[in-house]
Design a protein around this nucleic acid. Structure first.
Lengths: 138, 138
DNA sequence: AACAAAATTGAAATGATTACAAAAATGAAC
DNA sequence: GTTCATTTTTGTAATCATTTCAATTTTGTT
């Protein structure tokens, strides 16, 4: 299974020991680009890992974020959402259905400096909100 | 007091009845551009409005957001933060001290279309995270 | 002054996240 | 391959932001 390979490679590349639980979470993120919440990840994995604890999902995601292999999205005020795609791209939240979509990163008019007003920029987020195409049709 | 005037004008302009509580919240937001949390707003106003309830602060901010006179910022995963400046500008969260700073909006390379991938864009957020100048010095 | 509508309040419920300590799994040394 | 230390996982309980809701208070109108 190629995604399993990828999950393992990603974790090992970041120096994270690839336990069953960690592999499962990373694999889930890699194959479900829906920006799932902790609950969604837990519910999806619990059947195949019956002893899985929600705390483990929290721990695991925290570890992933700290090691730069996952992004935490705060676009949704209810739940944190997670994305294993850490390349620059934008996110769109539908205020109707609550889904979060990936969007192409919108290039800035100029290259972002390392510092703005003396603040060192480490992470850049582009969030858009509105009505998604699905919800528009209805 | 010019800010009191402004707060009243803003609320009336949005068709919001300017009660004591609402004026106080709007005035606080207008004069404290620190993107305060509900708790910070409540703690600041409670001394001068002894009967103030935290629920009222929640209700009031919800009303302000619905009527477009306040922005809710989800940049901080712990608490929602509020900003009465609804003009386009960016926000910077210091991951060290947790403060949220205003930044100039970074122009995009092209005018943002109304729709992207069929999704209708209504709100645009630019969030940056890193280490602020204050924390860098230490 | 009397009434209806709107706003405020406080207590209780909800629900996401964190803290923590015990149990289980893993890896290294022998 | 057994022993021991370290890491990881687990479940429960605590925390804390936010929402719900019904009662009370305030406001505007007649």
């Amino acid at each position: 299974m190629i995604t399993k390979m990828n999950a393992k490679q990603i974790l090992e590349g970041a120096g994270i020991r690839p336990s069953v639980q960690r592999l499962a979470v990373m694999d889930y993120l890699a194959t479900h680009k829906t920006h799932p919440t902790v609950d969604e990840i837990y519910s999806a994995l619990a059947p195949s890992i019956p002893t899985l604890s929600k705390t483990t999902v929290y721990n695991t995601l925290k570890l992933f974020v700290e090691n730069g292999v996952t992004q935490m999205l705060t676009i949704d005020e209810q739940n944190s959402r997670y994305d294993a795609d850490v390349s620059p791209h934008a996110h769109f939240l539908c205020t109707e259905c609550g889904k979060v979509y990936d969007l192409q990163f919108v290039d800035f008019a100029y290259t972002l400096p390392e510092k703005i007003d003396g603040h060192t920029i480490k992470e850049v987020y582009q969030f858009f909100k509105g009505i998604c195409s699905c919800c528009t049709e209805k």
